[in-house]
Write a protein that binds this DNA or RNA. Structure first.
Length: 187
DNA sequence: CGGTGGATTCTCT
DNA sequence: GAGAATCCACCGA
């Protein structure tokens, strides 16, 4: 069994699959909360036309070229924040977009940040908002915080692969991975 | 140097 | 299911 640092240092698709079921926690603004990741997407570097790293290093995506375990946070559609965990060797620009999660602790904190009590983290923008993540956390690492990734898998389930969401290039790649827990696994 | 297009979410119909 | 909200780096000229 590989350790998390070993997994993140390796192939982005392997890393993406192995992030499912892990705990993601944050301590931001004095508030602590945690979720379990249920949906992720892999993005490559210059070989992946749908990736932010495709056209090379830019001001906004610099952290994507950082070391494995770096948090890459970007603004989406001018109003949301989305976060990625960088994988592979530094300079490689591959990362796993965290698309969705199930709240486990601090649901009250997340509800307050989200302004509602349901759909707390079932989307990339929602997940970042629920955890209080913004551009300020861009470039931090998931080993040092304030956004931390659990070293162990906490939830097992069936991993389903699907097409990535919201992109217009490289639509064919099924690099989106969902964790289907429990008995009510749907298609 | 201005237009444009998003790795989205919410609300209303 | 469609449309609005809302920003700015990047592209093409």
């Amino acid at each position: 069994m590989k350790t998390l640092p070993e997994l993140l240092a390796g192939d982005v698709i392997d890393a993406a699959r192995c992030l499912l079921g892990r705990r993601l926690s944050s301590e931001i603004g004095g508030q602590v909360c945690a979720v379990v990741l249920t949906e992720v997407e892999a993005y490559g570097g210059e070989d992946d036309p749908a990736s932010h790293g495709f056209r090379g290093r830019r001001t906004a995506n610099a952290s994507m070229f950082g070391a494995a375990g770096t948090l890459y946070v970007y603004r989406s559609y001018g109003m949301h924040w989305c976060m990625n965990v960088v994988t592979g060797p530094a300079g490689r620009a591959a990362a796993v977009l965290l698309r969705g999660a199930r709240p486990v602790t601090g649901a009250d904190v997340m509800s307050r940040r989200r302004g509602r009590s349901d759909h707390l983290a079932d989307g990339p923008g929602k997940l970042a908002q629920a955890l209080g993540v913004s551009g300020e956390q861009d470039g931090t690492t998931v080993y040092e915080g304030p956004v931390l990734l659990g070293l162990d898998v906490e939830a097992e389930g069936v991993v389903r692969a699907d097409k990535r969401v919201g992109i217009t290039r490289a639509m064919k790649r099924q690099w989106r991975f969902l964790l289907e827990e429990g008995p009510d696994v749907r298609d």
